[in-house]
């Protein structure tokens, strides 16, 4: 499978800013999708609003670009009505952590067979760089001109607590591990959650003394630490997330039976 077998070549070059991590996430997703030999005609891609919401419009498959925060609810309907379809959700930190938080935690709890890929760039990119629920403490955005005074959400830890079957987080720097994890998430039964911490040089970097994509990229690299090692590094502040660092790795792997199987959906 070549890259443009899965993506719409007629829409290239895509609309994302120079250096945006979404392109990297798309590469990794493509690798994982091609390697897991899934049928693109039996896969539906669902997304919400925001930069991440535009990904399905580049994918050559049935895709549903929905309202802000609701992709998990739409995706659940698709999966339950036709369990033969593989359903992949692309979402962002604003979409998933703020307006769609309720659908996110209940989606994890309900454990419908979905693969949710969240591109977390710490900011609302499309609307011009407003603070998000994952913006680190003290960082600047267009609505926190004196620095963010709220502590951020740790989306992966939330997913673990809410009962998702598979939870993993990587940054766009960890392309190899990320690809491996997406592949695992795609074949995993039940609700699997992949958080991709990504650089937004245009909105996040620019306001936080990281003018180029390169600088944000290196900042991600410098601040990420493997989840397994994180416990020894715990600091007494929560500025980046619960660990004070971008913890990466696989957070949980459970084998709860998927909702569709529990209720025995017939078709």
């Amino acid at each position: 499978m070549k890259f443009f077998d899965l993506y719409r070549k007629d829409r290239w070059p895509h609309m994302f800013c120079p250096g945006c991590g979404i392109g990297t996430a798309m590469n990794c997703f493509f690798r994982a999708f091609a390697e897991s030999r899934l049928n693109q005609d039996k896969t539906v891609f669902v997304s919400g609003i925001g930069c991440s919401g535009r990904i399905p419009s580049y994918i050559l498959a049935d895709s549903l670009h929905t309202t802000h925060g609701r992709p998990i609810a739409f995706a659940g309907g698709i999966k339950l009505a036709n369990p033969e379809l593989k359903v992949v959700v692309f979402t962002g930190d604003g979409d998933l952590g703020a307006i769609g938080g309720n659908h996110f935690i209940n989606g994890c709890r309900r454990n419908i067979d979905l693969t949710v890929i969240c591109i977390n760039n710490y900011i609302y990119g499309m609307t011009g760089g407003q603070v998000s629920t994952t913006t680190p403490f003290g960082y600047y955005t267009s609505t926190t001109p004196y620095g963010n005074k709220e502590y951020p959400f740790d989306l992966s830890e939330v997913a673990v607590a809410a009962g998702a079957n598979y939870v993993t987080r990587w940054t766009t720097y960890h392309v190899k591990s990320l690809t491996k994890s997406i592949k695992k998430a795609l074949v995993k039964d039940g609700f699997s959650f992949v958080e991709i911490v990504s650089q937004c040089p245009t909105q996040f970097g620019r306001r936080n003394d990281m003018i180029s994509a390169r600088q944000v990229f290196e900042w991600l690299k410098k601040n990420s630490v493997l989840h397994k090692k994180a416990h020894t590094l715990v600091e007494d502040h929560l500025d980046l997330n619960l660990m004070g660092k971008i913890t990466v790795g696989e957070f949980v792997e459970r084998n709860r039976e998927a909702y569709t199987k529990v209720i025995g959906v017939r078709k």
């Binding site: 890259f3 070059p13 945006c20 392109g23 990297t24 590469n27 990794c28 392309v175 994509a213």
Partner: peptide, 10 residues
Amino acid sequence: ELCVLVCPDQ
């Protein structure tokens, strides 16, 4: 292939 995977613009 790190460059191929990382390149955001394919």
